[in-house]
Amino acid sequence: MSYNVPAELRYSKSDEWVRVEGDELVIGITDFAQDQLGDIVYIELPKVGALITPGESFGVIESVKASSDLYAPVGGEVVAVNGDLEASQEPINRDPYGEGWLIRVRPSGAEEELLDAAAYTAFCEERGH
């Protein structure tokens, strides 16, 4: 099975994506991640104003059969949160790079080691898919 890995994004090894929008970064989980989890039933996101640290947990995401921490691919201050997801998590499964975005961050400059689309695709395949 092949997954949608948009070329213009960068990716963490914990399956989050990062998109540059002006001075800010938008963060979500990848198509691979949503497929592995299955139907998402719950998500816990930070509040606006919270500081996130690369490599550390900034939230929790749950499906019926799995629970996973969300790890910050970059550091910075949370400037917006996708509040719609509290009531309905379905967009994360349906449109992980669009409507299913999680948080918007004003970056501090600190970053995890991020992969480009080709490297991330290879990383997904390595894990048996």
Binding site: Y42, K65, A66
Partner: peptide
Amino acid sequence: LRAREQDI
């Protein structure tokens, strides 16, 4: 809400 539990 089983994802809270120890086995998961």
